[in-house]
Design a protein around this nucleic acid. Sequence first.
DNA 1: TTCGTAGTTTGCAAATATACGAACAGTTTC
DNA 2: GAAACTGTTCGTATATTTGCAAACTACGAA
Lengths: 108, 108
Amino acid sequence: MNTGKDKLTPEQERLARFAKALGHPVRVAILQMLARQTCCYHGDMSEILPVAKSTLSQHLKELKEAGLIQGTITPPSVKYCIHPENWALANRLFDDLFFHIETNTECR
Amino acid sequence: MNTGKDKLTPEQERLARFAKALGHPVRVAILQMLARQTCCYHGDMSEILPVAKSTLSQHLKELKEAGLIQGTITPPSVKYCIHPENWALANRLFDDLFFHIETNTECR
DNA sequence: TTCGTAGTTTGCAAATATACGAACAGTTTC
DNA sequence: GAAACTGTTCGTATATTTGCAAACTACGAA
């Protein structure tokens, strides 16, 4: 039975997943640091960001699960950096979304 | 007393707010429709999207509160469209975030 | 081995988000 | 006015998110 409703596409799901990960100011701040400095240590971030380190860990985990960052253990600390492929993918998906309206801002 | 923690900036808060609004596949789908067609009626969307009309209303409200869309009553239906200024702002904020890494994908 | 440092995981509480049907409100049509 | 149509709000249930402290793991240094 066809109700006429479209299912959502994997691309829409993926973009929403990325957007959701970006949907918290602390995570935005994390990504800005990583995007601008290539990588960063948990410790450095926890000194700058206004959250407890356990909370920071959770945000980093969230970003990792969304695929936007990756972390590697470099004793005694943990180094995080942008996940290049997925970052590029996210960039492309956001661009695609924003692209269309540019010449078309009139509300008929 | 300075704890050394930075507060988050209004820009980070704003970007996170936009991203959060984009953080659901149905809302992504809504915005794609609006971005590609200038505007759309609630009724048209509710025939396409796999959610109850009351749920659709909630998603539209969420997008409106984030500032990404605007709705006008055009009896007997309601017309929604992109909010041009805020859409452009969101585009800029996302671009700024993604810009930096492009030449810098190596994880040292 | 014991201590200290660096992060993660757990446990918990409060706040938000998601979804739906039912009830409601505003218009147009009959 | 009554009925039909369109969309929002309400009530409810459930699930997810957020934040922190405390407990825990892993590793290197004393």
